[in-house]
Computed example of a mutant assay.
Amino acid sequence: MSISTMTKTLFGVDQPAIIADSQSFLQECSKLGFKTANISHINKLPKHSIVFSFSNDAAKRVFELANNTESKKCVFCATQVFDPTLDSALYSLDLLLKSDFEQALIAQRRVLSRLNSNDSFAMTGNGANAQIEIFSHAQPYALISEDIEENFIQSVAEFFEVHYAHMNPKTPSPFSFHGTLEISGILTVLRKPNPTLPSGLKIALRWLSDLISENGATLSVTNNVITSLKTNNDEHVKLLDLAAGHRGLKLTEFAIGVNENIATSINYKTNSQLNEGIRGVHLAIGDGSSGYHIDFLSPEVNVTPTYR
């Protein structure tokens, strides 16, 4: 593994320390040559760090430490809301170290400029046949080089995507999406247990994730509502509706991924936050609280303005 690209872009000449609440993960990172520390054993963050939290308590502690740290540059990986296992964390670290942060920040600026200059786009490539309209009140979320010049603590996902979110159903959606995408993988997030959800959903979604990673799927959307998710001839939209909570099949996110370097290393069976940054697009349903937040990843899709 090499950290040269990350070091140059984010941390200058310094090597970041890896901070976590999993001793087994820290031991593996030490073998790779990293300086490490346990979250519970420090009173402030190192000046430069990569943090993996394996529990909600650890994630809370990270931001307490950040508040106590005057000078900091920190990449934060919330492992606990995806898959808090050693294998998944090491996979995420591997993708992170293979990523070109400089290229991703430049690409985000380019995507942001395109989104701010146009309001209608077509999606092509990888079997996509879809359109999106961006409304005038929409505010894209992006990370550019100016955002990391001074102190920061940023989720790793923010480095690799530009996205629009519609988490509050009482507000108008920032976009209108129609069409079909070929899906290579999904990600699922439930931030804390919800006893009102049907039992067995976690197992069912794990099965669906494995199925899509092996066979692919076709996602159909009409007026921001998922109408179909098919693998071969099997329909899975009822499972999605059960899992997504009170928002049901209504889209809560549209994102453009910019991470080109992970394409040959990605494993869609791993529920890792790093997967969603792959170059292409992804859509999501659910809020992660009343139900699962589910991302549908469609790599190698191009988003092109349609001039009217």
Score class of each variant (00 low, 15 high):
residue 5 T to W: 12
residue 12 G to I: 09
residue 13 V to S: 15
residue 19 I to Q: 03
residue 20 A to P: 07
residue 20 A to S: 13
residue 20 A to Y: 06
residue 24 S to C: 14
residue 25 F to G: 11
residue 28 E to G: 11
residue 36 T to H: 00
residue 37 A to W: 05
residue 45 L to D: 07
residue 45 L to S: 05
residue 52 F to C: 00
residue 60 K to M: 13
residue 60 K to G: 15
residue 69 T to Q: 02
residue 77 C to L: 15
residue 81 V to P: 09
residue 83 D to R: 01
residue 87 D to Q: 12
residue 94 D to M: 12
residue 98 K to V: 10
residue 103 Q to I: 00
residue 104 A to G: 02
residue 105 L to C: 02
residue 106 I to E: 15
residue 109 R to T: 15
residue 118 N to H: 03
residue 124 T to D: 05
residue 130 A to G: 02
residue 136 S to A: 13
residue 138 A to F: 03
residue 142 A to Q: 06
residue 142 A to T: 10
residue 146 E to T: 10
residue 157 A to P: 01
residue 160 F to G: 04
residue 164 Y to M: 09
residue 167 M to R: 12
residue 167 M to V: 00
residue 168 N to M: 08
residue 168 N to E: 10
residue 170 K to I: 11
residue 176 S to M: 00
residue 187 L to F: 08
residue 192 K to Q: 14
residue 194 N to K: 04
residue 205 L to K: 10
residue 211 L to A: 10
residue 218 T to W: 07
residue 220 S to G: 05
residue 227 T to V: 05
residue 233 N to C: 13
residue 235 E to G: 01
residue 236 H to M: 02
residue 236 H to G: 00
residue 238 K to H: 14
residue 242 L to Y: 13
residue 244 A to D: 12
residue 245 G to K: 01
residue 249 L to F: 03
residue 251 L to G: 02
residue 251 L to Y: 08
residue 252 T to K: 04
residue 253 E to F: 10
residue 260 E to T: 14
residue 265 S to V: 00
residue 270 T to A: 06
residue 271 N to D: 01
residue 274 L to R: 04
residue 279 R to N: 13
residue 283 L to S: 06
residue 288 G to Q: 00
residue 289 S to K: 15
residue 298 S to F: 03
residue 300 E to A: 13
residue 302 N to S: 15
residue 304 T to R: 09
residue 304 T to W: 04
residue 308 R to W: 14
